[in-house]
């Protein structure tokens, strides 16, 4: 138990460091890598918090796909962030206010890990108790994901589908115009 807390704490400190580094490092390749590391660390915490499925996904997505995508984009756009002369005061103020509001909101949240919290006494116990009876699956998360809240998951696939369609809309090029572009480019060069 105490070991868990220590691991948790160390991971969290690393997370915070990574996060702050993301803000200050100006080499965007490094930032993309840092964000991948952030996701990996986050995935580790998820494991500690018993969310293995989530951890798996976060690792695959955050550390894997997102990072690849970012690197791909950086290859196109270049990797230096310019020094911005934006004043940090207003954003800082907003962030502090939002954070303070949230901390205020956590004041009377149930104690961490309390098995009698409303979250653990309403709805969820029914999943744990009945999943096997209803679906015959040991992995409750899969059962809830695909059956009890299968409609959410349909929506989730819809989101992914939307993203695919969106990217296609934005970036797919006509073959003909491609050639035209190349032509005009070569004309420019000559």
């Amino acid at each position: 138990m105490s070991l868990e807390i220590y691991i948790d704490l160390i991971l969290v400190i690393f997370l915070a460091i990574t996060g702050i580094a993301v803000i200050y490092v100006r080499n965007l390749f490094a930032v993309a890598m840092l964000s991948g590391i952030y996701s990996l660390l986050m995935a580790s915490i998820f494991v500690v918090l018993d969310a293995v499925d989530v951890a798996f996904t976060e690792a695959a997505v955050g550390a894997g796909i997102s990072t690849i995508l970012m690197l791909g984009v950086l290859a196109i756009t270049g990797n230096r962030e310019k020094v911005s002369n934006k004043s940090p005061i207003l954003p800082l103020l907003i962030v502090i206010c939002t954070g303070a509001l949230l901390v205020y909101g956590t004041w009377d949240l149930p104690i961490f890990g309390d098995p009698n919290a409303p979250v653990h006494t309403h709805v969820a116990p029914e999943y744990i108790a009945n999943t096997y009876k209803h679906t015959g699956m040991p992995n409750i998360v899969t059962a809830v994901l695909a059956s009890y809240r299968g409609y959410d998951t349909l929506g989730e696939v819809g989101v992914i589908f939307t993203a695919g369609v969106g990217v296609l809309l934005l970036l797919s090029r006509r073959k003909t115009t491609n050639k035209l572009n190349q032509k005009s480019k070569s004309e420019d060069q000559s």
Binding site: T142, A143, S147, T153, V157, G164, V167, L168
Partner: peptide
């Protein structure tokens, strides 16, 4: 339930994998 879940999970897998690939193509 079992059949249903396998089928929909398959649908999820196909869509996700192909979206990943298509995004890669585009970029």
């Amino acid at each position: 339930q079992h059949i249903g879940i396998i089928l929909v999970e398959l649908g999820v897998g196909i869509t996700v994998a192909s979206v990943m690939v298509i995004i890669f193509y585009m970029f």
